[in-house]
Design a protein around this nucleic acid. Structure first.
Lengths: 207, 207
DNA sequence: TATAATTGTTAGAATTAACTAACAATATTT
DNA sequence: AAATATTGTTAGTTAATTCTAACAATTATA
């Protein structure tokens, strides 16, 4: 089975819910969590208590629930998996959006890592939330390999002329004070690139 | 969620196990079930007890477990769903056979009917266990349309010569006393066909 | 501010599903 | 047939997850 951590699937659901509420900029109070999960508040309460004991959320009596850093990382992994499955069901299998959502939710805790990896491979990269990284997201000092250049033909050509093509490794040297343009190093050359250009270069970090 | 009946997914697993053992012609004793599920015998025992209470299996102390008709029907549905998902994971997603098996087992109880139907549509028919019907399975008096002829070239040719080719509708007239050969009517002719030949003709019933 | 409404907590019970351990029946071997 | 091994049953326990109901704190409203 594919549990990202050592949480029960039930607790994974609660953790995911907290992140979803946060991302939707809704408060994560007991009531919100209970409502979102469709359970009684007391159920949410004991679940959150267990998450707090595991160090994944912070919760003080009568106050709203916050993810810890550890909790947020885990929740993000869980949510990525969820979204990946939703995409698969909707875009490959062709199920209605709501059903895809519901089914993804039901099966996400039971799918192995191998299956997740394969699904990532067959989904077109731009649909794959876990892989949606562009050069813009790479921190100064780090390197990344170009996966695709997603730009209109004219700009695309210019980039290819600069040597930015799939497989090439780019190192981000530094950001200009206001973050635009950015300095990169590629094939021994140094270049500067506008941020919106960098955003259309899909990369995978080289670790 | 997609539960075929109103059983918990756990009980669905037990029911499915009983059918699998039966199909493999292995005895379905407590020990076999427990071993197949990887649980203690006492766990299997209480599960089977509940299945018996639901009228899905027959079980008398110290004797082996049999599916009731109701139980067998339900188990077949569950198993079809299982196989369908295994096919999807293995042949479409490209996961290793064992992983496909394991994952299918884990998610089969959580997938909605809509998703199952869609998967059926995208899988090639011969991969779809629920549709794997051969002429042999057609009852006397009923008709069916030939989908494919799955036979070695020599026999295949003979069948095609008899007019048995995809699209053609065959009516099963009657079985000989011992069930072999069977009388069929095709394109106005009457033919007799051996059962093992009939088994290699994949059909869809015309209703 | 007093009252009402909402939100949060706790305790206790029910269910499901697993386990271990003790014991009972059946089957196999000597 | 007696001894041993295997298989089956029962009882009792544990853990996870849910619930209801009673109560407590907080917030909103008149």
């Amino acid at each position: 089975m594919g549990g990202v951590g050592h949480l029960s699937s039930c607790l994974e659901d609660y953790l995911e819910t907290v992140l979803v509420l946060k991302q939707e900029k809704k408060a994560a109070r007991m009531r919100d969590i209970a409502k979102h999960m469709g359970v009684a508040m007391s159920s949410a309460h004991s679940a959150i208590k267990r998450l707090a004991e595991a160090g994944l959320v912070n919760h003080r009596r009568y106050e709203s629930i916050e993810l810890t850093e550890k909790g947020e990382n885990l929740a993000k992994k869980i949510l990525d998996r969820h979204n990946l499955l939703t995409q698969l069901l909707r875009d490959v299998i062709g199920v209605h959006a709501e059903t895809a959502e519901k089914d993804a939710c039901a099966i996400e805790h039971h799918v192995s890592q191998e299956t997740i990896r394969r699904i990532m491979e067959i989904l077109p990269p731009e649909k794959n939330p876990a892989e949606e990284k562009t050069l813009k997201n790479i921190e100064p000092g780090k390197s990344a390999r170009v996966v695709r250049v997603r730009a209109q033909s004219r700009i695309r050509k210019r980039m290819l002329d600069m040597g930015i093509s799939p497989g090439v490794v780019i190192r981000v040297k530094r950001m200009a004070p206001l973050g635009d343009p950015m300095q990169i190093s590629i094939l021994g050359y140094d270049l500067s690139l506008r941020k919106n250009e960098a955003a259309s270069i899909i990369v995978e970090p080289t670790d």
